[in-house]
Amino acid sequence: MAAIVLNLVLLIIGIIYLIPFIWMVLSSFKLNADVLSIPIKILPRTWNFQSYPNALNYAGYNFPRYFLNSFIVLVFAVLLCLFLSTTAGYGFAKYKFKNNKLLFIIVMSTLMIPFEAIVIPLFLLVTRLNLQDTYLALIIPGGLTAFGVFLMRQFFYSIPDEIIEAARIDGATEWQIFRRVSMPLAKTAVLSLAILHGQWVWNLLLWPLVVISKPDMRTLPQGISLFSGVYFTPYPEQLAISVLACLPTLILFIFLSRNFMEGVALTGLKT
């Protein structure tokens, strides 16, 4: 009996969490007048499939381009993050050079810098480097995460030194050992980090708003936040774009829900 009540309650809670999502998808297929009409219709009265092509070709906006921009930034920012996190994590975990701990603490201390607090000086820096309205301006700050370094250091720390020594005796260079021996062992940790960091990059709004002013360089979140009609609000179109923005992470989530949750669990550590 207790089990039935509990499961019923949990199911209801789960459905409550799903409602906004379901409403978004269904309403993106409604006619403009029906989205906010009373009485409420859950299903579209007439299915309006036109909202999707409308949104993608909306006058004054170039959403396919925003998608492309966001995608380019996502791919390269995640690659940069993975490159930096694995190399630095490996360096800190497997080499006993002077000041190893001090330098690691310095890297970790950047965890204390909230991105929101450095947006202004970062903007000035990027302007001085003449990088405003470029992909690089979005990619570089988007690829830096001390947490990634921490995570990979923890991981490589758990790999026994003997494997590395053995490869050295076989005459492999340090870089070869890193690429061929250590990295293959890190596959799952790297995947979790990529997913976790990818979500963060895909979501970035404040930074693009600050550093991108050319309409063609806008990212998707930026485009969505600026999207509005001139004489009326294009409700189904705005919802259609939101659905499309959700799709990539959603599809990944369906196939890799395990890794999504593992990524989050990693931020909770094994305390």
């Binding site: 190399t87 080499y95 890297v107 830096l144 370094v149």
Partner: peptide
Amino acid sequence: QKQGYIFILPTLLLFSIFLIYPMLDA
């Protein structure tokens, strides 16, 4: 062991320029 510096160099460089310097600059 000193080769470890090469592994951490890119991170130290980019973190200093794009995180630590802007914070001090603020």
